[in-house]
Design a protein around this nucleic acid. Structure first.
Lengths: 208, 208
DNA sequence: GAAAGAATAGAACGATCGTACTATTCTGTC
DNA sequence: GACAGAATAGTACGATCGTTCTATTCTTTC
């Protein structure tokens, strides 16, 4: 693992990182497309052209922003869950951190990928593809964790892992969406409880 | 009920309706905010100013579009479900029609309110409020239907009706979102099955 | 069918968008 | 500490945005 002191980042790399962090934040609030280069530059106290030079086109900025958000998602949700032991515990950890990631407002406008996927649903192109890949990989990872729990004999195989992952993700996503709309943090507790209950209902009875 | 012949609509009313229908369609694809008056006018084979005169401001156009979409949602989801008998049957009908409304692509970009609520999440103002009201009223209606099923002794009261409604809506919403992203119609079957199973798990055992 | 008014079109506005080009300032290296 | 190149700024462009104003065409009513 690299510490801050070992890796000497150039000035450009540091500001670029700061730009992408800010861009991802603003994108969850205003949207990735309506976020203009001019206003992002203002938010960064930079000139429009100075910021623009880092990317060369708005699309490149958007792609870099998506990648940056993906890294943050991984470090906030996937990585901590990987600390939990394989099986049911990890499935729960994934869901719990997914809800927590909305709850803690890692992005001010809620889950970056929930917001941007709706925005780019009907806009074909590399940005939409990148967002879709990230969401697909999240769903696959969740599905894989469910499979492992099934293989470990902790969850019944009564339904395919993919569909269970679909259900769990649905509950987490709903809490994200409803919190953004109504600002009632109770939805996070609802989502967690529903997820826990669903997992409980699929629990293999050890003594059966 | 009014038939087409009894109600003589003025020309303005007819074109206004056509504009709003088109606007709601395009809003689910491009977004309600980025949908410009100029492009909407082009899509309607009208002049920008001719179309604009119907509303007076873009915000008024947006509000009228939201209301128009709400009417369509009611006629596609709420009204048909009201034909089902009170209780569990109606809860199921509501969910089924909700999924069907995404599946049939009543709007080309999926559920109008799912799309626009994300877009206006962090943009305070009357448009956001109107969208929020509509979604809240849908959730309340679903919750009310669950309550009726509980009162009729068809569903257990083990969880509050509001949270059950939250779960059911989450599954329907997830199928809408994932279909828009991945275009795999299987998600609708997954959502329906998950909803049916959840309702089944809450079913009051008549002979208990 | 003519008068009155609704409905639509045309042209123009200031603002902002993404992008290109050029100039200036700063940073890291010998 | 000077040189080279990266990083940033300044300016200008064509296009499109929402909106306004005025003119024209179409509908409806008597």
């Amino acid at each position: 693992m690299e510490t801050e002191t070992t890796v000497r980042k150039t000035k450009g790399e540091r500001t670029l990182e700061a730009i992408l962090t800010r861009a991802a934040e603003l994108a969850t609030q205003e949207g990735l497309e309506p976020l203009s280069i001019g206003r992002l530059a203002d938010a960064m106290d930079m000139s429009k052209s100075g910021l623009f030079a880092h990317f060369g086109s708005k699309q490149e900025l958007q792609l870099a922003t998506v990648d940056h958000a993906a890294q943050l998602f991984v470090s906030e949700v996937i990585a901590p869950a990987r600390a939990a032991p394989r099986g049911l515990a990890r499935v729960w950890a994934l869901c719990d951190h997914m809800v927590g990631y909305s709850e803690r407002q890692v992005f001010p406008g809620g889950c970056f990928f929930a917001a941007t996927s709706f925005e780019f649903n009907n806009k074909p192109g590399p940005v939409r593809e990148r967002i879709g890949e990230m969401i697909r990989s999240w769903l696959s990872y969740l599905e894989h964790a469910v499979e492992q729990a099934q293989e470990a004999g902790e969850l019944r195989r009564e339904r395919p892992a993919r569909e269970i992952a679909f259900e769990l993700d649905a509950l987490a996503q709903a809490s994200n969406a409803q919190f953004q709309l109504f600002r009632d943090p109770a939805v996070f507790a609802h989502a967690r409880r529903a997820i826990r209950e669903r997992l409980e209902s699929l629990r293999e009875l050890k003594a059966a």
